[in-house]
Amino acid sequence: MIGIVDYGLGNLTSVAGAVSKLGFEPHITSDADTLAASDKLILPGVGAFPDGMANLANRGLIDILGDLVIKQRKPILGICLGFQLLGLSSEEFGHTPGLGWIDAPVTRLKPADNALRVPHVGWNDLTQTKPDCILFDGIADQSLFYFVHTFHMETPPDGSQVGTCDYGGAFTAAVQKGNVFGTQFHPEKSQQAGLTLLGNFLEKA
């Protein structure tokens, strides 16, 4: 069973659809027992960072997830906003502390090339800085994934970065720190490459 964390934000249906398509059983839930009974967790997310943290807090999910992911080491995949929430903090609409499981803040994209627009929307190449990461099994380096974001996670100092994307400078596009995985892009919206990556997490993490 795969627990898809419901915190009132995000494209839960899409993630659940992709999980089903890959032959796993998704449960969209914010219930502590259901999350505890899940083999793996996915933290999706479409939304603004402060709202995301507030919603997690309101549902008691910060403590629940902290217990499951940090103490019990249950694998989790954060996607887009869900990935950013794994970080230390975000400067989206002021300063908001994040879950802090990945030791890096989330800041606004500032492409060095002025012709590049923000938000960064569309299909872009993923550079596998750690090709051995299980997420990338069967996926060629420089495969295209779908991004849609205004903010990005800065490079974590602990070496947890596994993939980058270049948009007027390389930014962290995928991380793995033990059982904690995250992608700035949307695997559930990245057609075949995305499904392969999601399948790797579900089968191998």
């Binding site: 934000l9 479409v46 939304g47 603004a48 960072f49 709202d51 906003l81 989206e92 609409f93 938000p119 929307v121 849609v148 974001h149 205004t150």
Partner: peptide, 9 residues
């Protein structure tokens, strides 16, 4: 809407 859901959407 942008403050609630983020400019990207």
């Amino acid at each position: 809407a942008s403050e609630k859901f983020g400019a990207q959407c």
